[in-house]
Structures are given as C-alpha cells and as structure tokens.
C-alpha cells in the first residue's frame, strides 16, 4: 500500500512537472531559437552564449 502511495505521489509529481513544463516550453516557443540560428548560420558554431 505504502509503495503504491509513493509511486502515485511520484507520478503526480512527474505529471505536474510534465504538464507545467509542456506549457512553459510551448509558451516560449523554443523553435524560435533554432529558426534564428538558421537565418544567420555563422562560419564557426558557438559552443554556447551567455
């Protein structure tokens, strides 16, 4: 019983995390970053930016 409760709580956590994450990611439209990169591809690819 206890294990089931824990699993349910973990699943709930994942559900909350997943749901909120999906909304956040969708709102911020991550493909926009890729689109901008593709518009002006540099000769040397950035390792990252600050």
């Amino acid at each position: 019983m206890g294990v089931v409760v824990v699993l349910l709580v973990v699943l709930a956590g994942v559900g909350v995390a997943g749901g909120v994450g999906a909304i956040v990611v969708n709102q911020n439209h991550p493909d926009r970053v890729v689109e901008l990169q593709q518009q002006a591809e540099p000769e040397v690819i950035d390792y990252g930016s600050r």
């Binding site: 709580v9 709930a12 956590g13 994942v14 909350v16 995390a17 909120v20 994450g21 990611v25």
Partner: peptide
C-alpha cells in the same frame, strides 16, 4: 519532494 520537482518542471521528459 513534489514541490522541488515542480520548481524545475522542464527537466522532465
């Protein structure tokens, strides 16, 4: 524990 996960939802999946 669930709240800690909720603070960083975009680590999931």
């Amino acid at each position: 524990a669930v709240l800690l996960m909720g603070l960083l939802p975009d680590l999931a999946w």
